Simulated scan of single mutants.
Amino acid sequence: MQRKSLISDECPIARSLERVGEWWSILIMRDALHGLRRFDEFSRSLGIAPNMLTRRLNGLVEAGMLERRPYSERPPRYEYVPTAKGEDFRMVLMSLVAWGNRHYAEEGASVEVVERETGRPVQPMMATAEGAVVPLDQCLVQAGPAASAGMRKRLAPD
């Protein structure tokens, strides 16, 4: 088995995709964040094979995205509840909705992200910790404090 490069080992995108980058995992998280909790609910919503659903749910539990909680002892049955880490994934899904609508919804949006109180459409944005909006063209990715020399070199300005 070939080892991944050190750059991808420390890349937050690569690390994230390793845990939730698979098609079914993302759709399971979509459904979990929309309120589905039980195996049969996920199965009905997704039309996924039971063995595949079991593997993906177990992977999301191992990744800390979902928590497995018993709801029946006889027979033993479990529900899958988003953790705080799983709830944080909501922003990723909302960004995918906006991006997909912008680039792949020629017929119009079938799903929109809206403000709960007003129903007004919203767009994902970058903001400082204080809440000031920063245009995407004014943002960049730079090496962080824990970056290796290789990552620093890769992300160094030209």
Rank of each mutant, 00 (worst) to 15 (best):
residue 76 P to W: 03
residue 76 P to E: 02
residue 77 R to V: 03
residue 78 Y to K: 08
residue 78 Y to P: 01
residue 78 Y to D: 04
residue 78 Y to L: 08
residue 79 E to H: 02
residue 79 E to I: 09
residue 80 Y to K: 03
residue 80 Y to H: 12
residue 80 Y to T: 04
residue 80 Y to L: 08
residue 81 V to M: 07
residue 81 V to E: 08
residue 83 T to E: 05
residue 83 T to Q: 06
residue 83 T to V: 09
residue 84 A to M: 11
residue 84 A to P: 01
residue 84 A to N: 13
residue 84 A to H: 05
residue 85 K to V: 12
residue 86 G to K: 04
residue 86 G to E: 05
residue 86 G to M: 01
residue 88 D to P: 00
residue 88 D to N: 11
residue 89 F to T: 08
residue 89 F to W: 09
residue 89 F to G: 10
residue 90 R to I: 08
residue 91 M to E: 13
residue 91 M to P: 00
residue 92 V to E: 01
residue 92 V to P: 00
residue 93 L to W: 05
residue 93 L to Q: 06
residue 93 L to V: 13
residue 94 M to P: 00
residue 95 S to A: 15
residue 95 S to M: 11
residue 95 S to E: 09
residue 96 L to K: 02
residue 96 L to T: 01
residue 97 V to C: 06
residue 97 V to K: 04
residue 97 V to G: 01
residue 98 A to K: 13
residue 98 A to D: 13
residue 99 W to A: 12
residue 99 W to I: 09
residue 99 W to D: 04
residue 99 W to C: 07
residue 99 W to F: 14
residue 100 G to P: 05
residue 100 G to L: 07
residue 100 G to K: 06
residue 100 G to A: 11
residue 100 G to M: 06
residue 100 G to N: 08
residue 101 N to R: 02
residue 101 N to Q: 03
residue 101 N to K: 01
residue 102 R to D: 13
residue 102 R to T: 07
residue 102 R to W: 08
residue 102 R to G: 09
residue 102 R to N: 11
residue 102 R to M: 11
residue 103 H to R: 14
residue 103 H to L: 15
residue 103 H to F: 14
residue 104 Y to P: 00
residue 104 Y to L: 12
residue 104 Y to H: 12
residue 105 A to K: 03
residue 105 A to N: 07
residue 105 A to L: 02
residue 105 A to M: 07
residue 105 A to P: 01
residue 106 E to L: 12
residue 106 E to R: 15
residue 107 E to V: 05
residue 108 G to V: 08
residue 109 A to N: 04
residue 109 A to C: 05
residue 110 S to V: 15
residue 110 S to L: 14
residue 110 S to C: 06
residue 110 S to Y: 12
residue 110 S to G: 09
residue 111 V to A: 15
residue 111 V to Q: 12
residue 112 E to I: 04
